[in-house]
Nucleic acid binder design. Structure first.
Lengths: 207, 207
DNA sequence: TAGATTGTTAATCGATTAACAATC
DNA sequence: TAGATTGTTAATCGATTAACAATC
């Protein structure tokens, strides 16, 4: 266990979790790497390799216990830690996330949103209170959120990212279509580049 | 030119496009693979390899003409084709896209949205008219959109995907947290899995 | 026990990086 | 011409797949 874990493996973990959780809801108690492979569109070999980065969760001749494996993966991902997160920018995308997206299922507690607009400041959306961006420093230094959701206009993304890195935030979930360069800072940036995604689809359609 | 193009290369194309477009706005007329590599966080070798999948766009001793290269990549991606797209499901995420996202910059014209709710049907959001989902078949068969944006509740995603595949849609931009299996159908699915993305970040933060 | 299926090592495949001749 | 930088081939690296002994 604890071999070097590649990016490719980490990116597959949420997918494993999702399918195992579904299987669990369907009442499936155990599954072999072969069946899971068919269901997920992977190879059995790859699944066994992936899981063995973290430990031997299966049993020869039997397969894997669905609930146990799901919970192991949840734990590996840190979904049970409930780290604090904040949101920067409460526009349409920010609000869509606040109302429709369950941060808890992804291991986070969204504790505060920030914006500049009087339309949003002081109001609560999806149960999350919005404060003025001027209060960011004080809030972060006292509450120590580990993650920030960047849903502000792209012009302000780079500056805000540095500001957050300086404050010690450890992860940025970036919805602006900008590549953030936080050289030196120990910040992990996870990008959600809508445009890149749709352009990829455009390529496939026109192929 | 026209060597086999890997998934990895295709996924980098939008990023090349974005950076070249920025360089162009900055008034930069030419760039070497070395400088572009520094800017994009890649290696010069990889950039030259990537671009040579499609043709020799550079010039020895000079580098690449920024505007020309940007336009070549736009053309490779098909951003200049303006394919028709429709949206299925006009909830908060759908509306956020309709109001804030520029489909044209990604090679699509969003021509119609569909929903069931009387709150949305007959209304226009971000310049796109919403029709009742019952009119889907007629519309698709006459207008022949090549792409559908799936922003409906996840319970309905699988059924709707089959329906769209049957109607001859060629690409699905999937915002529901479900893996769609359209075996046999010639449909490319491009997923935007918010939860998978955030869970990945959760892993990094708890590492 | 016999059958099934894992964990793990070895083989293959593909993608990235390095090197350099071609040439602007 | 000399310097710079590409296009392209070869070398390396890493990830996926195959194979099989271990074992439940």
């Amino acid at each position: 266990m604890d071999k070097k874990v590649s990016i490719a493996v980490v990116r597959r973990l949420p997918k494993y979790y999702r399918h195992l959780d579904e299987l669990s809801s369907e009442g499936v108690a155990r599954i072999s790497s072969g069946s899971l492979a068919v269901r997920m569109g992977l190879t059995a070999s790859q699944i066994r390799q992936d899981l063995n980065c973290f430990g031997g969760f299966g049993q020869q001749g039997y397969g894997y216990n669905v609930e146990r494996l799901r919970d192991e993966i949840a734990s590996i991902l840190g979904l049970d830690r409930r780290a604090k997160a904040i949101m920067i920018g409460v526009g349409r995308i920010g609000k869509a996330l606040l109302y429709n997206f369950d941060f808890r299922l992804c291991g986070f507690e969204l504790v505060r949103a920030f914006d500049v607009s009087p339309d949003s400041v002081g109001r609560s959306f999806g149960g999350v209170m919005t404060a003025h961006i001027g209060e960011l420093e004080e809030f972060v230094l006292s509450e120590r959120p580990q993650c920030a959701v960047l849903t502000l206009p792209r012009e302000n993304a780079a500056t805000m990212a540095s500001r957050l890195a300086f404050l010690g935030v450890k992860g940025i979930w970036n919805f602006t279509n900008v590549d953030l360069h936080l050289d030196g800072a120990a910040v992990w940036v996870e990008n959600v580049h809508f445009a890149d995604s749709l352009m990829t689809l455009c390529y496939r359609i026109n192929e």
